[in-house]
Computed example of a mutant assay.
Amino acid sequence: MKIRRRIKYYLIRLFRLKSSPHQVALGLTMGFIPSWIPLFGFGPVLSIGLAKLTRSNPISAFVGGVIGTPIWPLLFILNYMIGGFLLDRKPKVDTLEEVEYSTAIQHTLSGFFKSHTSGVLFLTGAIINIVLSSILIYFMTFFLFKKYRVTILNKLR
């Protein structure tokens, strides 16, 4: 019950922000970007920095960073799958059970500067996923805040 109450509290805080729909949507988008790359827990902090850099809302950026933190294994695998698909190579990681944080970081970092390695697959997938998810998150959030901000707030109360 406490988790549900906490989620409701943060949703209310998010929808009560006085910023424009553009600033909130851009902040949430900037906040989710670091979630695609394993950053040892520094994602939400980097999210706030990206928000300040783009002059968007830092609170919504923090929320975006927090949203992406618990689902990093899924995002990690998506990076490998998309990279493998685009480069026509089979990734080393296929399922969520195979993702171990320390091993994943080691494979990714060791392969950044070698051609045709897992690091290249990961980076290719990450770039594509960041671009596509950013566009999707921005327009969904912008639409929600532009059209339904008051309605959602009333339902949350």
Score class of each variant (00 low, 15 high):
residue 18 K to Y: 09
residue 51 A to K: 10
residue 106 Q to R: 11
residue 100 E to I: 12
residue 126 A to W: 07
residue 71 I to H: 12
residue 129 N to F: 05
residue 80 Y to G: 06
residue 96 L to S: 14
residue 12 I to K: 06
residue 10 Y to F: 15
residue 37 I to C: 10
residue 106 Q to W: 01
residue 17 L to A: 02
residue 138 Y to Q: 14
residue 16 R to L: 11
residue 77 I to M: 10
residue 120 V to Q: 13
residue 122 F to N: 12
residue 80 Y to C: 08
residue 126 A to K: 09
residue 40 F to M: 12
residue 40 F to A: 09
residue 95 T to N: 13
residue 16 R to G: 02
residue 18 K to G: 04
residue 89 R to T: 04
residue 121 L to F: 02
residue 16 R to K: 10
residue 130 I to M: 14
residue 45 V to N: 03
residue 33 I to L: 01
residue 99 V to G: 11
residue 14 L to N: 10
residue 24 V to S: 00
residue 111 G to D: 05
residue 48 I to E: 00
residue 13 R to I: 15
residue 97 E to T: 14
residue 121 L to N: 10
residue 35 S to V: 05
residue 4 R to K: 15
residue 66 V to R: 11
residue 107 H to L: 07
residue 131 V to D: 03
residue 93 V to Y: 12
residue 19 S to E: 06
residue 57 N to Q: 04
residue 93 V to T: 14
residue 25 A to Y: 05
residue 89 R to S: 04
residue 81 M to H: 14
residue 109 L to W: 03
residue 30 M to N: 10
residue 112 F to Y: 15
residue 108 T to L: 14
residue 27 G to E: 10
residue 20 S to A: 05
residue 78 L to M: 05
residue 132 L to F: 15
residue 72 W to K: 01
residue 4 R to M: 07
residue 88 D to R: 11
residue 153 L to M: 04
residue 66 V to C: 08
residue 97 E to A: 15
residue 123 L to Y: 06
residue 28 L to A: 11
residue 15 F to H: 07
residue 17 L to E: 01
residue 76 F to C: 03
residue 97 E to Q: 09
residue 128 I to P: 10
residue 149 R to E: 05
residue 74 L to G: 12
residue 157 R to H: 14
residue 23 Q to T: 07
residue 93 V to S: 03
residue 145 F to G: 06
residue 115 S to A: 14
residue 88 D to Y: 05
residue 43 G to T: 11
residue 1 M to F: 01
residue 98 E to P: 01
residue 8 K to M: 09
residue 40 F to K: 06
residue 138 Y to R: 05
residue 111 G to L: 00
residue 16 R to Y: 06
residue 13 R to Q: 15
residue 38 P to I: 13
residue 107 H to I: 04
residue 154 N to T: 13
residue 145 F to Q: 02
residue 2 K to R: 07
residue 45 V to S: 11
residue 63 V to H: 11
residue 124 T to C: 05
residue 30 M to P: 02
residue 73 P to S: 05
residue 10 Y to T: 08
residue 69 T to Q: 11
residue 114 K to N: 15
residue 80 Y to N: 07
residue 103 T to P: 02
residue 13 R to E: 14
residue 143 F to I: 03
residue 25 A to L: 08
residue 103 T to E: 13
residue 101 Y to P: 04
residue 77 I to Q: 12
residue 79 N to D: 14
residue 107 H to Q: 09
residue 41 G to K: 03
residue 144 L to M: 11
residue 126 A to N: 06
residue 53 L to D: 01
residue 93 V to H: 13
residue 79 N to W: 09
residue 29 T to L: 02
residue 27 G to T: 11
residue 147 K to M: 15
residue 91 P to W: 04
residue 35 S to K: 00
residue 43 G to E: 08
residue 55 R to I: 11
